[in-house]
Amino acid sequence: MNTLAGIPGAACEFYAELEQNNNREWWLAHKDQYHDLVKVPLEAVLAQLMPVFGDAKLFRPYRDMRFSLDKAPYKRAQGAFVSNYEGVGFYLQVSADGLLLGGGYRSFSPAQLSRYRSAVDATASGEALARIVENLAMAGFTIDGQILKTVPRGFVRDHPRAELLKHKTLGASLLPGRPEWMETANLATEVAARWEQLRPLVDWVIRYAPP
């Protein structure tokens, strides 16, 4: 297999079948497919991206079922997080739906959350983040994260950046699906271009609300 030729479409088919057969017997019978179609190609792409975007962590394919009503043992997607900062960085995933790319922060220690809210509240840094988020939305990214129903205590309800203050975590994602470049040597270049669009968000968090 050419590990520099992107991620094969068969990786998506693997996850489509897994959704219908999420059990140990099926997984063991198809584990080699996971290795060859998903893990190895994704690791090859991440290796190309790491020098610019940071160290890569490939998540385990096994689910933590201790606190879940859904007892399916395997994740329905393979994700990877790329960063030089704990909890702040870039995301890449492959599933039955194809590729998903993202960036932002997913950790929310009390100290970090306090720094984030203070920076959103401050005029200069808060307006800068609002512009970043608006630009990403206009570029087709979905703004996501863990969000409170109301503005947190200590801030007025009609705050000009009330929606950003509600965020406990903040990210943006894009679902290109199965574009033609997914299976080519251009995959890393295409992912990098979209991560560069996300870099202002990641850099803002690193500057104003580091872990």
Rank of each mutant, 00 (worst) to 15 (best):
P176L: 14
S83I: 07
A188I: 09
L198C: 05
S107V: 14
V205M: 10
E19K: 13
V156M: 14
N2S: 14
S118N: 14
A80D: 13
A122R: 06
G98A: 14
I7C: 01
I206S: 03
G145K: 01
G177L: 10
K75I: 10
N84M: 12
L58T: 13
N21S: 13
M138R: 10
R153I: 06
K166E: 02
I132W: 07
S107M: 11
D97H: 07
F53R: 08
G103T: 06
R24L: 14
N135E: 14
K75Q: 13
L170M: 08
R194G: 02
R66M: 10
V94Y: 03
A137L: 06
L58D: 11
P61R: 14
R178Y: 00
K39P: 00
R106N: 03
V38P: 00
K39H: 07
L129V: 00
Q197M: 13
E183G: 05
Y116H: 02
R24V: 13
R199T: 12
A193W: 04
A10H: 05
R63V: 11
V82A: 08
A122T: 05
F53N: 07
R153E: 15
P61N: 14
Y34W: 15
Y15T: 03
A188Q: 04
P210S: 15
F59H: 11
A122P: 00
V120S: 01
D97Q: 11
R161M: 07
F141H: 11
M182Y: 02
D158V: 04
D203H: 09
L58F: 15
G103Q: 06
P176C: 12
E163G: 00
K31T: 07
F108W: 12
G140P: 02
E196G: 02
P176H: 12
V120R: 02
L101E: 07
K71G: 06
R178V: 07
E43W: 01
L42S: 01
Y34Q: 04
Y62S: 07
Q93H: 08
Y116N: 02
S118A: 15
G9T: 05
A122K: 04
M65Q: 04
P61Q: 15
P152G: 15
K168L: 15
E134I: 02
Y62L: 13
T3L: 15
K57L: 08
T3G: 04
G171V: 05
M1E: 10
T169N: 05
L49P: 00
Y116V: 06
A119M: 10
P152S: 15
Y74L: 08
R131G: 06
P211R: 13
R161Y: 09
G102A: 10
D97A: 14
T142I: 14
L69I: 03
L101S: 06
K75N: 13
R63F: 11
G87K: 11
F81W: 13
F141S: 11
V45T: 11
F53M: 13
T184W: 04
T169I: 09
R66I: 12
I147C: 06
R161E: 05
G9S: 02
E17I: 00
E134F: 08
D97S: 09
N135L: 07
R60L: 09
